[in-house]
């Protein structure tokens, strides 16, 4: 009763406090530098991009005349919306595979390894310290025509001539990106698993749940914030990736960023490039908003996060 009353008082108090703060001139002065910084480096570029997406293009040069044409083009030309959907699909696969790879590993390191836990964890996230390009090129060496995979398969006799399909395909892109983002996802999941106290798992077993039910009713829900954060990371970064498809993907696996890249480059169609950029931005913002809400609804043991 008592603390309910206290809560009610707090609820009434907070908005007033905020209103007062908004009018505080000293605070406004303090806010000016970050506002300028954000304006120059964040809002201004997006504003330019946004405006650009409504200009016409005439024989390779921009005509400053309002049009919906770029948006229409995006939604009617399968090269554009198709690539966009394909990118979403690739991002989804990368996310799923990263989770499938990293969750069991994070679980194993956290719950099953007693000695040298830190060492195992470090070994698993070492790839993070290797440059992106090196990791992408490594896959070229593995998957290429004269690559390790082909040579092994030839030696075993499973194939009789080198396969080209391993490289320059969507599979290669998904594989490489999964490899690149798995450590991030793992780190995120591991952190939330690490914060689950042993007592809580024992309480579940004490109350009659075996290992399986304890996992699904206690461990998994409590690791959701980390899982969601990691998944968002992998998904969003894959959405914006253009190196992996360029190096390993071949023409059939162009992703959104490759299209944007060429529109701003060789194709010299900045307005359409801006359109795709803006649409991507909104989709990513939507995803971030969604996962942010999901994360908020889950509970973890990390300080500051709590279910509401």
């Amino acid at each position: 009763m008592q603390d309910e009353a206290a809560l009610a008082i707090n609820k009434n108090e907070r908005p007033t406090a905020r209103r007062q703060r908004a009018w505080n001139p000293r605070l406004l002065i303090l806010l000016i530098p970050p506002i300028i910084w954000l304006s120059i480096f964040l809002f201004a570029p997006y504003a330019v991009l946004f405006i650009n997406s409504f200009w016409k293009v005439d024989f390779g040069s921009i005509v400053h005349e309002f049009t919906w044409g770029n948006y229409t083009k995006f939604f009617t030309n399968s090269l554009y919306y198709g690539t966009f959907l394909k990118t979403l699909k690739i991002a989804a696969w990368v996310t799923v595979f990263s989770i499938l790879l990293s969750y069991p590993l994070a679980y194993f390191i956290n719950f099953k390894i007693k000695k040298n836990k830190q060492l195992f964890y470090t070994l698993v996230i070492i790839p993070l310290w290797v440059s992106y390009l090196v990791r992408a090129y490594a896959w070229k060496i593995v998957l290429g025509q004269d690559g390790i995979l082909n040579n092994v398969l030839l030696a075993v006799g499973l194939i009789d001539h080198p396969m080209e399909i391993f490289l320059y395909s969507q599979y290669a892109v998904v594989l490489a990106l999964t490899h690149i983002y798995t450590p991030w996802v793992l780190m995120s999941i591991y952190t939330s698993l690490e914060h689950i106290p042993r007592d809580v798992l024992e309480a579940s077993k004490d109350l009659g749940a075996g290992r399986f039910r304890t996992f699904f009713r206690v461990v998994l829900p409590l690791s959701l914030p980390g899982l969601i954060a990691g998944a968002t990371f992998a998904f969003v970064l894959t959405m914006g990736d253009f190196l992996a498809p360029q190096l390993l993907g071949g023409t059939s696996s162009m992703m959104v960023s490759n299209v944007v890249y060429s529109l701003f480059g060789v194709a010299n169609n900045w307005p359409l490039g801006s359109t795709i950029g803006i649409l991507t931005l909104f989709v990513v913002l939507g995803i971030l908003q969604l996962t942010h809400r999901l994360e908020h609804r889950t509970t973890s043991f990390e300080a500051g996060t709590r279910g509401r």
Binding site: P197, D199, V200, E202, A203, S204, K205, D206, L207, G208, A209, G210, V218, P221, L222, T298, T299, S300, F301, R306, G307
Partner: peptide, 20 residues
Amino acid sequence: VPPYKRDVNTVFQSYALFPH
């Protein structure tokens, strides 16, 4: 016999409630 098959229950020092 594993804990979940023992007719015994525990009140933990830390309470160990399920926070979610």
